[in-house]
Design a protein around this nucleic acid. Structure first.
Lengths: 122, 122
DNA sequence: TTCATAAATTCATACATAGGCATATCTCCT
DNA sequence: AGGAGATATGCCTATGTATGAATTTATGAA
């Protein structure tokens, strides 16, 4: 029950759902998620830690970069939750739009993306 | 997406989840749910209206009494959500305990139950 | 090794939202 | 009209979201 409530609370925020759906097809660097959601780095970091605590995503550190991906855990709770979210939103308008935005973001290389933040996206 | 977020927010509270699971096997009167959750009537009413807005449950008025039951809607969003919750919690300890509590509550007749509230459960 | 820099997270704080209750209001029955 | 159950309103507290600043971690240069 505790584990389940951790999951439902993690899923109760739209930005976290969008991030989760973004990760369903690919691994993403935090700076890509920041660009994607348009939120402050600290905010995104918090969202990721909530998703991670719920075991819905996993983090992998590569040098200074942190990469997140959907959880590969076999826990039934986690699998069911992820499957439910994906099945419910696979054809959602906003999620489809997000996919297009993500395609653009994926074309930039990571260094440019991170540098752009500093220059206020100039 | 909006509909989906309504559902996840409705599911992000433990009392609402317990109420939802209680309704999975039977219809319940509000006063039974009040007894079950041990919350103030106004609080329970609010929880029920949130679940109802998310279309997860339905209300049926019979005289002065309000009866709630799981939604019979065929909307895929709703069916998937309900199925997910039930599948995830069917064997949950707390939910099983709740079932025992509910058995007791079901044995009282409704009038006694409602009257008990007034007398501060004396 | 030491220092500087960059990315990510944690911390401190402001603001908004949500849960809880008491009380007022509404609806329905007699 | 009177009385009962249920819901709406108003208030308080707690939790959640968002941000900038400080801290941590890792890289690369001196």
């Amino acid at each position: 029950m505790y584990e389940f409530m951790n999951i439902t609370r993690a899923l109760s925020d739209e930005n976290r759902i969008r991030a989760l759906m973004a990760l369903r097809k690919r691994e993403l660097c935090v700076c890509q998620i920041i660009e994607f959601l348009g939120l402050a780095p600290s905010t995104v970091s918090k969202h990721m830690s909530i998703l991670r605590q719920a075991r819905l995503i996993e983090g992998r550190k590569e040098g200074v970069w942190m990469h997140y991906s959907l959880s590969s855990s076999r826990r039934p709770e986690v699998r069911k939750a992820i499957n439910w979210v994906i099945a419910s939103l696979e054809n959602d308008e906003k999620i489809i739009k997000d996919e297009k935005l993500l395609s653009k973001i994926m074309k930039c290389n990571l260094e440019d993306l991170c540098r752009r933040k500093k220059n206020k996206r100039g």
